[in-house]
């Protein structure tokens, strides 16, 4: 029986391994950095499963393929199906109208409806509720996939993959750019804060003319605040300006966030192709699956299905842009 070797255990690699195993394939995983942790960019993700919202600034496949993610993840980890709430300050209401025009799958909400959904957002008078969206805790999701793979008998090797592997699936993200020359890094910065004084139960997006800001509840008063998108490949630090912008967005949602503790600062690079959509490429004995950009958890299931289709059935999904087996 063919053994598929998945290289990399970020969200792409683990999702691919999980999908292959679910289709009855035999899989092993290589990652010298060990189990999921702060070394991978999917550790720093928001974990929003929000294809309708993301469509505001992305191409059509994100909307369509992203919808696969909800059930795919729900079968593997805890998914909170409470929707997304999008709000804007009065001065940015034109942005809310534009957002509404570019998306669907929402209902318009007024002050009383907002108060019903999220009582701690009492400052806002207009918003959009994307009721079919969901969120998950990305670190828990990675740990769950990892454990399930071990339970399913998958060997996970804490070492570099041997060169000249047959049937390799390279999910190394930005590390694969020596082969995938059109891959680039897009800097993202995020914060994790603890603020038991504020209760939010679903991801909230605050529209802002310069960057999309969101806050995702992680439970126990912990919130993830993200994320910048900068065309820079320096992942060494967060800038003061980014931190100011993220924190002032939280403060604008509810001034009680001013008392939050900052418990983590994350900076990493998202791997992206020029159209910011993921790709599957087969070059020789290796299938490359990469370019999830800011849609790691949203598009990893579709990417994994596309890889499994190619690897097991030689079927070419729309994400396959090159096949030189």
């Amino acid at each position: 029986m063919t053994v598929w070797s998945v290289i990399g255990s970020g969200v792409a690699g683990l999702a691919v391994a999980s999908e292959l195993v679910s289709r009855g394939a035999k899989v092993q995983v290589f990652d010298p950095a060990g189990p999921p942790g702060p070394h991978g960019c999917s550790w720093w993700a928001g974990g929003m499963l929000a294809p309708w919202c993301e469509y505001e600034n992305a191409e059509e496949p994100v909307l369509r393929l992203g919808q696969i993610a909800l059930d795919w993840w729900a079968a593997r980890t805890r998914v909170e199906r409470r929707g997304t709430l999008v709000v804007a300050n009065p001065r940015d209401l034109p942005d809310l109208r534009r957002f509404a025009r570019r998306t669907d799958g929402y209902s318009e909400v007024d002050r009383s409806k907002i108060a019903e959904l999220e009582p701690d957002l009492h400052r806002f008078t207009k918003g959009l509720h994307f009721m079919n969206e969901a969120h998950l805790n990305p670190r828990q999701a990675l740990r769950d996939l990892y454990k399930q793979l071990l339970d399913q008998g998958v060997e996970i090797h804490r070492k570099l993959a041997p060169s000249r592997l047959e049937n390799a699936i390279d999910c190394r993200g930005l590390h694969a750019r020596e082969v995938l020359h059109d891959l680039r890094g897009v800097k993202g910065e995020m914060l994790v804060i603890r603020c038991p004084d504020v209760t939010l139960t679903r991801p909230v997006r605050l529209l802002h003319p310069r960057m999309p800001l969101y806050i995702v509840p992680r439970g126990d008063g912990i919130y993830m605040l993200g994320a910048t998108m900068i065309e820079s490949e320096d992942s060494s630090r967060i800038t003061a300006r980014s931190m100011l912008e993220l924190l002032s967005a939280a403060y604008a949602l509810n001034p009680a966030f001013g008392e939050a503790e900052v418990i983590e600062i994350g900076v990493d690079l998202r791997p992206a192709f020029p159209d910011n959509l993921p790709r599957i490429r087969r070059l020789g004995h290796t299938i490359y699956a990469n370019g999830l950009y800011r849609h790691g958890y949203l598009l990893a299931p579709a990417l994994a299905q596309g890889v499994a289709d190619l690897a097991l059935d030689n079927k070419h999904s729309e994400m396959v842009d090159e096949d030189r087996a």
Partner: peptide, 13 residues
């Protein structure tokens, strides 16, 4: 300004 030296890939585009 914001890319401060590390935007080479984008600038090349």
């Amino acid at each position: 300004r914001r890319e401060s030296g590390a935007g080479q890939t984008f600038w090349q585009m």
